[in-house]
């Protein structure tokens, strides 16, 4: 993979990752480590902690998620994130758009032969 391809892929994943984070938080509030772990379970996204936290602060700045520090029963305090109402609306919009885009792209690339 060339550096150019890698750069393109990283841009591509970052956009998708914002949607992934919103979708994850739609099921309930999570703290930082949980978000990183849940996303790391999805091999296609190939994420690290270093990409997740800056994206969380971006989403927070945009008013899509809110956060609060809370004591943890064990260990250090945790920062919990949840969707705001604006975030919920944004998620619905983005998810709808994503479905449209992904169906169109799937149809286009289904004719591309992999591995050749």
């Amino acid at each position: 993979m060339t550096a150019e391809t890698a750069g393109r892929l990283s841009q591509f994943r970052k956009g998708a990752l914002e949607l992934a984070i919103l979708a994850l938080l739609d099921r309930g509030e999570l703290y930082g480590v949980e978000i990183v772990e849940r996303l790391a379970e999805l091999p296609g996204l190939a994420i690290t902690a270093g990409t997740v936290y800056p994206l969380l602060s971006r989403l927070k700045k945009a008013g899509l998620v809110a956060s609060v520090w809370r004591e943890s029963p064990v260990g250090p305090p945790r920062k919990y994130y949840r969707l705001t109402r604006k975030g919920e609306r944004e998620l619905v919009e983005l998810a709808r758009a994503w479905t449209g885009v992904s169906e169109a792209i799937d149809a286009l690339i289904s004719e591309v032969a992999f591995g050749d």
């Binding site: 930082g32 990183v36 902690a49 936290y53 602060s57 250090p76 305090p77 945790r78 920062k79």
Partner: peptide, 19 residues
């Protein structure tokens, strides 16, 4: 504020994961 918050968050992440 941004710097403190960023550092605090990484510290929390590292401490929890290390534990």
């Amino acid at each position: 504020r941004v710097v403190d918050e960023t550092v605090a968050e990484i510290r929390a992440h590292l401490a929890q994961s290390a534990e």
